[in-house]
């Protein structure tokens, strides 16, 4: 009797472990396959049946792909675009979220909802023409500015939730002591909001970094971002699988590592609003 109970418990644990394994395996397998393709030489990559573990670990793919496709330039572009769009989102998004949370102006928050619903392409047609008219085409500015469509709603959404969860008493005390609204915000609410700003900022950077369509249309030869550069490798050049997978891995690796490092904060921020860029 005792034996069968512990046996059953063991069997249940085993079944549960198997369920966890089945659930995470699609994510792991696709990412490992990307890694495998990136590290194999062309002979291994073109073999059938496929070779899973490279016969020799071949880091040459990474060097080749960076050198031949000027990925260093596009890497810099991506950093500038995501950095600019996120910094502006923080600068105007923190006070905006604070104001919306305090005034309960949820009708204003609906604007961010509309941004969430509208397909990215529909902003692009008018903005494409606008940037032509004011002569910004060919610079990195159109991309950086349009990425605000991604970063600002995500950031404001995370921050509204964050400010509403903060206790009111400290600010009220500050106001009674004669602080202006701005001073109460600047010296009381803002320092408390720092963790929220970090989470919102990281999510903004990731979704801006990942975005493809804005830079695909607005980016030129010098100004495209990394995802666009990698896509162009697929279409305009006959590139072998190894370098292609290496390029894909280079684009997405920073995001994957960041997600694993601060998964708790990212999960918290994502659940706050079911946010997603694009």
């Amino acid at each position: 009797m005792v034996m069968s109970v512990s046996l059953r418990r063991f069997a249940r644990k085993l079944a549960f472990g198997f369920a966890v394994f089945v659930i995470v395996s699609p994510a792991i397998l696709v990412i490992l396959w990307m890694l495998s393709l990136a590290l194999k030489n062309e002979v291994d990559n073109m073999a059938y049946p496929p070779v899973f573990v490279p016969s020799t670990f071949n880091f040459q793919n990474f060097f080749d792909v960076i050198e031949r496709n000027r990925l260093d330039l596009y890497f810099l572009n991506s950093i500038l675009v995501s950095g600019f769009a996120t910094l502006v989102a923080i600068a105007v998004g923190v006070p905006a979220a604070y104001g919306i949370a305090k005034a309960q102006a949820h009708k204003l928050a609906v604007l961010t909802l509309i941004a969430r619903i509208t397909p990215a392409l529909s902003y692009l047609i008018p903005l494409y023409i606008l940037f032509q008219w004011i002569g910004l085409t060919g610079t990195i500015w159109p991309i950086a500015i349009t990425h605000l469509v991604i970063t600002l709603p995500i950031f404001i959404y995370v921050m509204i939730g964050f400010f509403e969860s903060l206790p009111q008493e400290l600010e009220e005390a500050a106001l009674i002591d004669g602080c202006t609204l701005w001073q109460a915000f600047r010296h009381v609410a803002l320092p408390l909001a720092r963790p929220g700003i970090v989470v919102g900022g990281i999510l903004s950077i990731i979704f801006s970094w990942n975005n493809f369509v804005f830079a695909a249309i607005l980016g030129g030869r010098q100004t495209r971002t990394l995802p666009v550069a990698v896509f162009n490798m697929l279409t305009f050049e006959q590139v072998a699988w190894g370098p292609l997978a290496a390029a894909a891995l280079l684009v997405t690796l920073p995001v994957l590592v960041l997600t694993l490092l601060i998964q708790k904060e990212i999960v918290g921020g994502l659940t706050a609003g079911g946010v997603k860029g694009g």
Partner: peptide, 26 residues
Amino acid sequence: RGLFRAVFILPMMATPVAVALVWTMM
């Protein structure tokens, strides 16, 4: 659990273009 959950959400954080390239090859 935290680690497994993080691995599970990796696909939604991954760059769509990079993911699409790998699936194209698959």
